[in-house]
């Protein structure tokens, strides 16, 4: 499925064979600063697409606009063929484009299980009038509970199922947030720095989770600063700088692109190793 990407040219805005997300002219300015100015971008279905770029490149703002958490001044984008611009965040999530947050948002005073159950879609008991009649929602609830248990198992959180989410460690919160996003049954998932602040072992396990999601047919869009992870798991890499897409292509191509190296290191630097972290096996040099 991902091999088709090898054949297409590596120029910013290049059309993909089977795009799930198509963005056109998305523009978000804060005062005089163009935070995001993406002319055209397509994201291939069923692949891991990484969004990289130096701090302030507009990656998170771009995510926020796509998912309805921020309002761009202009632009259109469609997901699975349906236009999404002008929609509320909850409507976009219902269409199957689900995000996580850079700073995890565990619902601290709810149990881990309740965090999961809350994410399930189409629960009739979430409607005010139906909530008063348990007979309407009891079966759905039981099904959701089974699914939540499976997902918590997969993300090694089963032992915490009954605890308040506020008692989880930072890494466990990242896992919970990913599991919770999956509980919504998305067709594409946008992960905003899932590895940030996570120890190397857990980062590796998250990386394999993400690949597994892709292998199960999910589209994954990832903002990540850990270049080892990005280069290791991505099928396609998009590099942003100053709000624009400056390069896209397979990991090796983007990594060697002079425009990308310029963006990260400044125009005068010669090409060099872009890895930002030592190998996971070695102790961090700090």
């Amino acid at each position: 499925m991902t091999e088709v990407l090898n054949a297409i040219p590596t120029v910013p805005g290049v059309p993909k064979p089977d795009p799930i997300l198509v963005v056109d002219g998305l523009h978000r300015a804060f005062g005089g600063l163009d935070a995001v100015a993406v002319e055209h971008l397509e994201v291939q279905r069923g692949c891991i697409t990484s969004l990289i770029g130096p701090n302030g490149a507009g990656k998170t703002t771009f995510f926020n606009c796509l998912t309805g958490f921020d309002r761009p001044q202009g632009g259109t984008w469609s997901f699975d063929g349906k236009p999404l611009h002008g929609r509320f965040a909850y409507q976009i999530a219902r269409r199957g484009l689900v995000r996580t947050f850079q700073l995890t948002k565990a619902l601290a005073r709810l149990t881990v299980t309740d965090n999961m159950l809350l994410a399930a879609r189409d629960n009739p008991g979430e409607r005010l009038y139906a909530s008063l009649i348990p007979a309407i929602w009891r079966d759905t609830e039981a099904r959701n509970r089974d699914r939540a248990r499976e997902l918590l198992d997969r993300f090694e959180l089963s032992h915490m199922a009954g605890e308040l989410a506020g008692t989880l460690s930072g890494g466990q919160r990242k896992l919970l947030e990913m599991a919770r996003a999956l509980m919504t049954d998305p067709s594409a998932i946008l992960l905003d720095e899932p590895m940030a602040g996570v120890n190397p072992r857990l980062a590796q396990s998250l990386a394999s989770h993400i690949q597994e999601l892709r292998d199960n047919g999910l589209t994954v869009i990832l903002i990540e600063h850990d270049m080892d992870v990005v280069m290791g798991i991505s099928d396609w890499v998009v590099c942003m700088a100053e709000g624009r897409v400056i390069s896209e292509g397979p990991p090796a191509t983007v990594r060697a692109d002079p425009a990308v190296i310029d963006a990260y290191l400044g125009a005068r630097h010669a090409p060099q190793e872009t890895s930002s972290r030592p190998d996971p096996g070695e102790p961090l040099g700090i």
């Binding site: 309805g68 958490f69 999530a93 947050f101 948002k105 619902l107 809350l118 509980m183």
Partner: peptide, 10 residues
């Protein structure tokens, strides 16, 4: 707890 998280769940 966090309304944005709940929004992101649809």
């Amino acid at each position: 707890e966090d309304e944005d998280a709940v929004r992101s769940m649809g």
